[in-house]
Every structure is written in C-alpha cells, then in structure tokens.
Nucleic acid binder design. Structure first.
Length: 513
RNA sequence: GAUUCCGUAGCUCAGCUGGUAGAGCAUUUCCCUUUUAAGGAAGAGGUCCUGGGUUCGAAUCCCAGCGGGAUCACCA
C-alpha cells in the first residue's frame, strides 16, 4: 500500500483524519476510488421538477453527487448531496442500507468514514419528508470518491420573505480564482455565469452559421503580429530557430481568406496582449472576428444590433437586462452618433473643422490630458473618452473615427480625415469595433509606413509592416466589412459581472507563494 | 507602473491606546425519534503572510518584501 501518511507533519488535523478514514476504508475492503461506471438515472433538477407525490414515481432511481452537509441522528440521518444541477436531500436509515446483521456500512462507513466533500452514488426511492422537502430514501449507498481536503462550508438559509441568506460565503477573490474548482463547488451562481458564457457563444455561432459564414481557424503563433495596436508576447520555435509572437488579433489572416475567395469567415479566437491587467483586462482574452465580402460598415451595424439583441433574448428572455444599477435595453435600433456629433452633444463644442492647434487648445480648456506627441486623432479620442464614453449606458454606435487611429480601415467615402469605422459602446465600455476594410494596397502600404514611423518614435504599440498581407491585397480583396467583438466584455455585460475575472475560469494570477 | 486598503484556525470573521490568541460553522468523542438556520454535551485545533526594527513585552507600532482587492495610467 502507498504510504499515504507521508508528509503527515504538513497536514492539518482534518486532512490527517481524512487520510486515516481512507486507510480504514481500504482495510474494510472498500475501494475509495472505484473505476467502474456508476449508472446515474436522473439529476437533482429533473427529480425535483418532475416528481409528483402519490403517483408511484421514481421508486427506484440512482443519482450521484458530492456530500455537502450531514445531520446524523442515531440510526437515521439526513445529508445534502450536490450534483451538476443542484442539491437534493437524502435520507439514510440504518436498516434500509444494512438489511442484514452487519450494520457496519451505516455505523462505520456512513457515520464515521465519510465526510463532507466525498462523492457518493445512491439508489433509492423519492419521497417527501414531514417538513415537505423532496428527498431520497436511500436503499444502496456507494462511495465513488473520497475527498482528502475539507471543503469551505457555506450555509444558505431562507428568511420569512423567502430571500436566500448566505452565511460564511467563500468570497476571497484570490482563493476563488486560484482554486476555481472550489468556487464552482461552493458558489452555485458561479456556474451559471459560465453556462451563460457558453450559451452566448453558441447563440453567436448559430447566428453566423445560419447566414452561411464559415467558422475557420488561423495561426496563434505568428512570425509577425498585427491587426491591432498592442504589445505582444514573444516566444521561440526551437527547430526553426525562429521568433514567434502570440497573436494580438486575427484580422490580417482572416482578410487573406477573403482574398482567397470566401464570402464570409469568422473565428472565435484567444488573443494575447502583453499589457497591464485590470478588471477589464486579462492577458489572454477571447474575440470573435467576422469578415464579410461586398458589405460595408453600415451593413455591419445592422448585423451587430440584430445579433446582440438575439443574444440578450436567448440568455434572458428579454431585450432588457440588469447591469449594475442600470437597465440596458438591447432592442434595435440602437442610437447612432458620429464621433464629432457625440462630442458636440456632450461638450457643446463642434470640433469638426478644427486644426490640430485649435484642438489642443480645446482639450486644454476641457481639462483633458494632452501631450505634444499626440496627433489630431489621439486628442479627439481623448476628448471622446473623457466626455462621451462614460455617459453612454444604453447601446450606442459611434461612427467615423479619425484616420490616424485606424490604419486598417478604409477612408470615409465623403468625409476627409475620417475612416468608415464604428464602435458599439454599452455601459460606458466598448463592446465591438468594426470598419469598412481597407482594400487599397497602396493606401495600406502608406498607412503601415506611418505606423513604422510611430514605432521609430517609440510607440511600442505601433503596427509592423506585413509584406505578405500587402502582397495578398495586391492580388485584390473585394470590398469587405470586418467586425471584432470582445466575448469576455460582452459576457460581463450579459451576466452583470463587474470583473473580467468573473467570466474567465482561470484568470491570470501571479505564481502562488 | 502609481496611490490606497487588506493578509489571524479548514471556511467566515472579532481582537480597543502594545500585556497569556477569540467566536460561529467545519473537525474529534459521546448521546440521539423523518431533521430544517447548524439536534444536544464535551474537546482538540494557530509560522497571527515573511523578514527586520522599536519595546521589559508586538497579531497590534515602524521599515522592507511577498500575495490579493480597489482606484488611476495603458489597452479590448
């Protein structure tokens, strides 16, 4: 037998006791980690929803889960069992599980050697207790997995008004994120957030598939990073002896596929940006990018409205959802502002014909932070960020951005100095970014060269020049509309989560200890 | 990266101007009827994040470090 008590000095009393129980179980011939299938016939949710008294229903069911609490009273006990759907009470009576002379399964195994956190399977009959709780009268009980560490104990009670009160909740953010498995076991609403995240992605995927767009995969390891302004993670391929970057966006590869002749492609992609972390930023995050040939950004705005409205309805049964103190209504159409008109609306100032000098003075007047290195576009963006973005709670499209900040977007068809770009802002945060894609290879080369200049001047986020991408454009890319939606951010909105760490199973953390 | 707050038992948290380390739940032992907030009784359990300093004496005050939260900056 394994020496399971090695390192015993480092174990807490409770861990030692559980290891002792484990040894005792093995001595009794009970395998604490059995391999064979345990046939589960029902889950707790279905059982509670469907069971009817006096109908002879569920007289022989089997169900498995984790023991979450126990109340032992002599020869009869109650315990709560938790499976993937919820909790169900079980009633364990000595003479029901030990029909013969040998009562050790109840007296020793159930009462002494099992613990909160152990995973068991039971077979029995559903009934209602005198206090009215649907429960399972256990006829057979089998240990499926012994738990060697004590679980955080969270108690839930209900007050007179029927509100749930949580006692001793497992709330320490560090422990919750580092040990997400515990968070999931102990805080049931956490699971709901992640189920909603998957439903959101599923809804988006079927929305796009219904329209005939093709889901594709493009490289995560790239010799040149591009498609966004950000600092990358760098790695090295040993055999090729080659520097590779983890992608910061998938834009340039997806556009190559449009060149290749696909009409619509999309990708759910993990992207990586080597930048600061906050409750809105994780170093790896998920985007959905979509490119559709022969469309423009006006068309894409309609698609975004429709898609996000559909997501809200699928997740909440309504276009209106609660977000912090606000009720946000995703019903289309959303409000639309050009960037200049938004600034005019919120500051009363018309900047549309200002020179860089006038803009700088205006920014100073508005007490917006400006630096001499900032170009016209950057100053406008600062004013917008300071005065408009924070006021935009309901979903709103902002269109027609300064050209300096959008090196991959096509010049506006009628407004000089601007590009055909929009962002959707909701709850004061950007949820998507889109443009009529730049498909003029000569203009694109010039824009890249401007980025190189910025890079030389020390802008670490400036884009690199991608010669192969330009070559692809020179063969000809049809007019195309592109979109990027931040899945984490959208999930935060849709699940009323305040931190990105609450919608990512394993957010990035410093090494423990 | 800057500012600020936090780190005490398995979990949630008290611990006052510096004087032997506390509670509830969990855990252990005993009693026990279909129990309901967590049945009753008794017990055990601590690197007070780490390292320095001040002091007769530090969980407490000071300094540094580690980890985390919040706000700001950068960004999506």
């Amino acid at each position: 037998m394994l020496n399971i008590n090695y390192m015993i000095n480092n174990l807490s009393e409770q861990e030692q006791i559980r290891r002792n129980s484990l040894e005792e179980l093995i001595r009794m011939g009970i395998n604490p980690f059995p391999a064979e299938e345990f046939p589960v016939t029902i889950d707790s949710e279905e059982l509670i929803k469907k069971w009817q008294p006096d109908a002879g229903m569920y007289t022989d069911i089997s169900i498995a889960g984790r023991i979450m609490s126990r109340r032992i009273m002599g020869s009869a006990s109650f315990a709560e069992m938790q499976d993937s759907k919820g909790k169900i009470q079980i009633y364990v009576k000595r003479d029901e599980i030990c029909t013969g002379e040998d009562k050790s399964l109840y007296n020793i195994v159930f009462k002494k050697l099992l613990d909160i956190g152990d995973i068991i399977g039971v077979r029995g009959e559903v009934f209602k207790t005198q206090t009215g709780e649907i429960s399972i009268k256990v006829k057979e009980l089998k240990l499926l997995c012994k738990s060697l560490r004590p679980l955080p104990i969270v108690k839930e009670t209900t007050d007179e008004k029927g509100n749930k009160i949580i006692h001793d909740a497992f709330t320490d953010p560090e422990q919750r994120y580092r040990q997400r498995y515990l968070d999931l076991v102990v805080n049931p609403t956490v699971k709901d957030v992640f189920i909603q995240r998957t439903r959101l992605v599923d809804t988006m995927r079927s929305f796009l598939n219904e329209r005939g767009y093709l889901e594709v995969e493009t490289p995560i390891l790239q010799p040149l990073y591009g498609g966004a302004s950000a600092r990358p993670f760098k790695t090295v391929h040993n055999t090729l002896d080659m520097t590779l970057y983890l992608r910061i966006a998938n834009e340039l590869y997806l556009k190559r596929l449009i060149v290749g002749g696909f009409d619509g492609v999309y990708e759910f992609s993990k992207d990586f940006r080597n930048e600061g972390m906050s409750r809105f930023h994780n170093p790896e995050f998920t985007q959905m990018e979509l490119y559709v040939a022969y469309k423009d950004y006006n068309w894409m705005m309609n698609l975004v409205e429709e898609m996000v409205e559909k997501i809200a309805v699928t997740l909440h049964g309504d276009t209106k959802i609660l977000c912090g103190e606000h009720i946000i209504d995703f019903k289309k159409p959303w409000k639309r502002y050009t960037m200049y008109s938004a600034i005019h609306e919120f500051t009363g100032i018309d900047i549309s014909n200002m020179t860089e000098q006038e803009l700088t003075e205006t920014a100073r007047k508005l007490k917006v932070h400006v630096e001499t290195t900032m170009g016209k576009g950057k100053i406008i963006d600062e004013i917008f960020g300071e005065y408009c973005e924070s006021k935009l709670i309901q979903p709103t499209f902002i269109t027609d951005y300064p050209i300096e900040m959008s090196p991959l977007a096509k010049k506006h068809r009628s407004k000089t100095g601007l590009v055909e770009r929009f962002e959707a802002i909701c709850n004061a945060k950007e949820i998507c970014n889109s443009f009529t894609e730049l498909n003029d290879p000569l203009d694109q080369r010039m824009r890249f060269e401007e980025q190189l200049e910025l890079g030389k001047r020390g802008d670490e986020e400036a884009m690199t020049l991608d010669e192969d991408f330009l070559r692809a454009l020179e063969y000809g890319m049809p007019p195309t509309s592109g979109l990027g939606i931040g899945i984490d951010r959208l999930t935060m909105l849709m699940t009323n989560s305040v931190s990105i760490q609450d919608v990512i199973f394993f957010p990035q953390m410093r090494t423990e200890r």
